[in-house]
């Protein structure tokens, strides 16, 4: 297990490779469909200090409010590929070092990992309470009224959020690899 404290230096991220298990400590920020669309259309300034040398988490959490503070009840990853059209530009503009989600992303994001110096971290799909319990504090929420709970920018302070690097800054993608390998197997099993 490799420990990464956020914010993180580009040179430390470039050391990570496909297959590495990572635990995150520090701030990660949720952003999914509406948030990505908003970022590339408006390039809001408030986002910069949140994710520069930091992490975007593809997640629409279940949150509970007690008094003034918010608590993450269930916060597993959502499917990342939906952000493929936007992510490369977002990573480049804000210098994001980690994209966290599930299912992997495509060639544009893989190239951005190489150019910007970033990795894609695959969290365990469905492990919602487990991942929510690594959130030690909800630091803030942005655009909650405009975007709603699942789509807002949630600033989570995490301690020991686990994931596996499946796309690295050297241009390697576990998803692309497995697709190739399993395609060969499929052809053999089907007999075509």
């Amino acid at each position: 297990m490799i420990r990464i404290d956020l914010p993180v230096l580009e040179k430390d991220i470039r050391k990570l490779k496909v297959g590495d298990e990572v635990s995150l400590h520090g701030t990660i920020v949720t952003a999914r469909d509406a948030a990505h669309k908003l970022m590339v259309e408006e390039w809001p300034k408030f986002v910069e200090p949140l994710i520069k040398n930091g992490a975007i988490y593809h997640c629409g959490p279940v949150m509970k409010k007690t008094g003034k503070s918010w608590k993450a009840v269930a916060a597993g990853p959502t499917t990342s590929i939906r952000e493929e059209p936007y992510e490369a530009a977002v990573m480049d503009h804000y210098k994001v070092r980690l994209i966290i989600g599930k299912g992997g992303m495509g060639p544009k994001t893989l190239k951005a990992c190489k150019d910007v110096g970033a990795v894609y971290l695959h969290a365990i799909g469905g492990a919602a309470p487990l991942l929510a319990d690594t959130v030690v504090r909800t630091k803030a929420v942005h655009l909650l009224d405009k975007l709603g709970v699942p789509e807002a920018f949630w600033e989570f302070e995490v301690d020991g959020f686990k994931g596996i690097v499946t796309m690295d800054s050297k241009g390697k993608s576990l998803h692309a690899n497995l697709l190739r390998q399993s395609k060969k197997k499929r052809d053999a099993i089907i007999g075509i």
């Binding site: 269930a74 597993g76 487990l130």
Partner: peptide
Amino acid sequence: NCDLASRTSRPICQ
């Protein structure tokens, strides 16, 4: 995760 969900009556997945 399943153990945690069951013990705390929380959804297994969000």
